[in-house]
């Protein structure tokens, strides 16, 4: 392990946490922009320090563990949520050389595994809270995330087949001619939807569903434990945006501008799109969500695999 990688290991989580915190402000500003309001614009220039102010506030809030909760698991759940998201960033290649483990030959599987583990955070949180709403939220989260993980994995297979590798760096290199978003447009859409469901963001935020479940799986959480769920959610947005950039939008590749700028630019646009989704779309009913997943997205992703496979076979044969 080189010194550079060690520095990366220290810096990456700090940067991600800072970004996620900043994102809470960015989201509120953007929602304001799309709702003809201004959003928080008072603290610091343009309101950027709002995120810091909120962070300080939540640090000073009482961190209360309900007496009826299962203490150990209750404390563990937000930590899992945070950890899995942060670990996933290890394999995201910012540029060809700058990342902790972009060359990992099972990089994509690693990300999927971490996302799979991320389900435990919400399920355990819902379970350990020992209250109805939290449990319902946790159950919804489990069903939603597990089922969407299926299509997420299947949608990615198209990319993997075209690259012939699970390494995210190879995947980006394979897109030097044409970004995968064109040949893999079906996979792209499925992955995008699954990514939204995976981070349980609006419009697929049924595990939280404020108006029906209180706050869903984190109903009983307060103080910094709630803050961790919150920050993990925003880090999740960054993660999914970075993943989509890497897998479908050519990663760091682009003309003129240097590589990190391209990567940041694409990721930022995607994050903006995530927030636009929140501003524009209402939450579907739970059965609609499941029907969309199993009846539309699953066949679509399977079809995508079959077609991609057939085209690839024809190419190699011809």
């Amino acid at each position: 392990m080189t010194l550079l990688a060690l520095v990366g290991i220290v810096i990456t989580p700090l940067v991600i946490l800072g970004l996620a915190t900043l994102l809470t402000w960015v989201e509120r500003r953007l929602l304001g922009v799309w709702q003809n309001r201004c959003g928080p614009n008072r603290v610091g220039p343009g309101g950027v320090l709002q995120a810091a102010a909120d962070g300080i506030k939540i640090l000073f809030k009482e961190d209360w563990t309900p007496p009826f909760a299962d203490k150990g698991v209750f404390v563990l759940a937000p930590a899992i949520g945070m950890m899995t998201v942060l670990l996933s960033f290890a394999v995201i290649p910012l540029t060809f050389s700058s990342s902790i483990a972009a060359g990992l030959n099972v990089g994509l599987l690693f990300v999927l595994a971490m996302m799979g583990l991320g389900v435990y955070a919400v399920v355990l949180a819902g379970w350990a809270s020992n209250s109805k709403f939290a449990l319902l939220g946790g159950m919804r989260a489990a069903a939603q995330m597990i089922s969407y993980e299926v299509f997420m994995g299947l949608a990615l297979m198209g990319v993997v087949m075209m690259t012939g590798s699970f390494s995210l760096r190879d995947i980006v290199m394979a897109q030097s001619g044409l970004w995968f978003v064109l040949p893999q447009c079906v996979g792209f859409v499925v992955f995008l939807l699954a990514g939204i469901a995976e981070t349980h963001r609006l419009p697929f935020d049924l595990p939280e569903g404020e108006n029906e479940l209180g706050a869903g799986f984190h109903t009983e959480y307060s103080g910094m434990k709630f803050g961790m769920f919150f920050i993990a959610e925003y880090a999740g947005i960054v993660l999914v945006s970075a993943l989509i950039t890497t897998l479908y939008l050519g990663g760091w590749q682009g003309p003129i501008l240097p590589a990190p700028i391209w990567f940041t630019l694409k990721t930022t646009v995607l994050i903006g799109f995530f927030i636009l989704l929140r501003a524009a779309l209402p939450r579907p009913r739970y059965d609609q969500l499941m029907a969309l997943g199993w009846k539309i997205l699953l066949p679509l992703s399977l079809l995508n695999i079959v077609v991609t496979g057939a085209v690839l076979l024809l190419h190699t044969a011809g």
Binding site: V33, W34, Q35, L276, L277, A279, A280, L281
Partner: peptide, 8 residues
């Protein structure tokens, strides 16, 4: 809806 919201 997405486009209209964006235009706001």
């Amino acid at each position: 809806t997405l486009i209209l919201t964006f235009l706001h």
